[in-house]
């Protein structure tokens, strides 16, 4: 019934050959571009990793650049104990996890509200979201410190500095680090979702909040993961807010430990070589980054194509 003529077959194979060469050359170009750029990112990182394993002689030797001649674990061990990695990382984990989950939930809520509902003052509120992004928190850090130092009304104030409360309060009110970005992201994403998605759910008798939970959130999965990753990583490495709101005495997390615990003069009064000191600080940073990279490697696999599965047939 459906036999192909020879010429058609030849034309087909010719087209597929052209396609294949096009495909292969494109993947070559892509490979070169990505490799080159990754090199730019990885090279400084790689140097730091290798320096971690170098002895002092290797570090001062200008001929040794890429990998150590005398491998050693002493810097790594020294740094690990000095920043008290396990307790510090545990504190960081608790704080980052709480803050990022809260921020993810609150920012999604606010973003959805701004995207889908018409109410008075919506534009003003969105303007405020952008304003929180525009004004760098570093500029009003002193006011913020005083705000939480004398937290309360009139004479009834409590000092929240040194506790996790400022972080929780800021996250709960969408005022945490870069929360404007997350709200904005969610708003843009929800505005890009087809409205029929909700309409179908409303017709099926789903309420506004039921729709939000059962239809909207599953569709926003990629964005939720993205917000979580950003929020978690930035909280994990944040020094500015931690040093301002936690201080060093009460609670120590990883960023504080890196800056405060590694000193040129150790607690015993022993002086550390400046080069070793610099390498120790870099090593501490590596120790902080690696869990994040593992987390991201795990989570980026969950970013999947095409999430408009539920409730909509186009």
């Amino acid at each position: 019934m459906f036999t192909r003529s020879n010429t058609a077959r030849r034309r087909l194979s010719g087209a597929s050959l052209a396609n294949r060469t096009k495909k292969i050359s494109w993947s070559l170009v892509r490979g070169v571009i990505l490799f080159g750029l990754c090199f730019e990112i990885v090279y400084p990182f790689f140097v730091k990793i290798m320096q971690t394993f170098m002895t002092k002689e290797d570090l001062v030797d200008p001929t040794i650049k890429l990998y150590p001649l005398h491998w050693t674990l002493s810097t790594l061990r020294q740094t690990f104990t000095e920043i008290e990695f396990v307790p510090a990382a545990f504190n960081s984990l608790i704080l980052s996890l709480t803050v990022s989950v809260l921020q993810m939930m609150i920012c999604t809520l606010v973003g959805y509200g701004l995207a889908r509902f018409k109410f008075r003052g919506r534009n003003l509120l969105f303007f405020m979201v952008i304003l929180t992004l525009i004004i760098p928190p570093q500029l009003y850090s002193i006011t913020q410190y005083l705000y939480f130092y004398y937290f309360g009304v009139g004479q009834h104030t409590v000092n929240l500095i040194g506790t996790y409360w400022p972080f929780l309060l800021l996250s709960l009110t969408g005022m945490g680090m870069k929360n404007g970005l997350y709200i904005f992201l969610m708003r843009q994403f929800f505005r890009g979702l087809p409205k029929e998605l909700e309409d179908a759910a409303y017709i099926d008798g789903c309420g506004i909040f039921g729709t939000y939970l059962r239809v909207i959130l599953p569709n926003a999965r990629n964005m939720l993961i993205t917000v979580f990753v950003l929020s978690f990583s930035w909280q994990w490495t944040d020094y500015f807010f931690s040093s301002m709101l936690l201080g060093a005495q009460q609670v120590t997390n990883l960023p504080l430990a890196i800056i405060n615990n590694i000193q040129l003069i150790r607690t015993g009064g022993e002086r550390v070589d400046p080069i070793l000191y610099a390498v120790e600080r870099n090593t501490a940073c590596l120790l902080a980054i690696i869990p994040l990279l593992i987390l991201f490697a795990f989570l980026q696999k969950k970013l999947i194509n095409g999430i408009e599965r539920s409730g909509l047939v186009e």
């Binding site: 509200g113 109410f119 919506r122 509120l125 405020m128 929180t132 009110t173 005022m175 506004i208």
Partner: peptide, 20 residues
């Protein structure tokens, strides 16, 4: 729906008024 909208953005309104 507009009331629901206020509910959704309520956390941020509180943040703007009392923190920001």
């Amino acid at each position: 729906k507009s009331y629901a909208g206020y509910f959704f953005v309520l956390p941020f309104i509180i943040g703007v008024c009392f923190v920001f």
